[in-house]
């Protein structure tokens, strides 16, 4: 119980720290707010002839692009960034496990990325004048929470992988747009060739997009929504389990190979 409260405090402190740091970083502000805004403008412009019904789909979808990009570039680099700034050794030497610290950083990152969805919402409503209503507000809220958990957990998996495999990290740019498409952020995956569908099913962002689109645009059955939620929880649990192993391996490797610092 005592451990839980100190860890909760450490998570909140790491989240606050990360938020204060990243909001002064131009690259982060671009990834979270400007890029999704550009995608939203393009999407809303292209779909203007289809009327306002489709606008909420674009708003949610462009928000998800911001979420995915920030996950890939900010959460993915969360440990590497500490290493470059020389704070990683200090963080590894504290009693709080590094995984708990990175969880807090990812939480801040995912929550602030949600801001891009709000910006897209305002844009569609004020600039394009679409009447935006969320079909199932309560279910949409639950979907958002599950999306946050899944994305934060996924960040815990990719950060140690990127640290241990600089070669994989070089694929970051290449991983950005395929997931926008395969996860159905901006258009349904039914428009893609059939062979890509199984790949989509293996991506947590696809189930996040499903849950958010079905509850915001409406039209989804209860079963479809529950399946999306179940898959998000399933992936979150797998990610957390895998991340525990990865953090252990990464820290052991770093202490053997002396790679916590850069000198």
């Amino acid at each position: 119980m005592i451990k839980l409260s100190v860890y909760a405090r450490a998570i909140l402190a790491s989240a606050e720290m990360s938020f204060r740091e990243t909001m002064t970083d131009g690259f982060v502000v671009f990834g979270i707010f400007v890029q999704p805004l550009i995608i939203a403008i393009l999407g809303l412009w292209m779909l203007r002839d289809r009327g306002g019904d489709y606008a909420i789909f674009v708003v949610v979808g462009s928000g998800l692009t911001g979420l995915w990009s920030s996950l890939l570039f900010i959460s993915g680099n969360s440990i590497t960034h500490e290493r470059w700034t020389g704070t990683l050794e200090t963080l590894v030497g504290v009693p709080t496990p590094l995984g708990v610290i990175v969880f807090g950083k990812n939480l801040a990152n995912v929550l602030q990325s949600m801001g891009s969805m709000a910006v897209s919402y305002l844009l569609a409503s004020l600039l394009f004048g679409y009447p935006l209503t969320v079909a199932e507000p309560l279910l949409f809220g639950i979907s958002l929470i599950l999306t946050v958990i899944a994305f934060v957990s996924f960040g815990l998996v990719i950060a140690p992988i990127f640290v241990m495999n600089p070669d994989v990290q070089r694929w970051q740019n290449g991983l950005e747009f395929p997931v926008y498409i395969l996860a159905g952020f901006l258009f349904p995956i039914a428009l893609l060739p059939g062979w890509t569908t199984p790949i989509s099913y293996l991506l947590a962002p696809y189930w996040a997009a499903q849950a958010l689109h079905l509850t915001s645009s409406g039209g989804g059955t209860q079963t479809q929504i529950l399946v999306s939620w179940g898959m998000l929880l399933f992936f979150s649990m797998i990610y957390i389990f895998v991340s525990r192993v990865l953090f252990r391996v990464m820290l052991r490797k770093a202490r053997i190979e002396a790679t916590l610092g850069l000198e």
Partner: peptide, 19 residues
């Protein structure tokens, strides 16, 4: 240290991490 943050922010953060 976290250079973009104040000394107090740095100390508050590490105080949390040291429980």
């Amino acid at each position: 240290l976290y250079w973009r943050l104040s000394a107090i922010d740095n100390l508050r953060y590490f105080a949390s991490l040291y429980h």
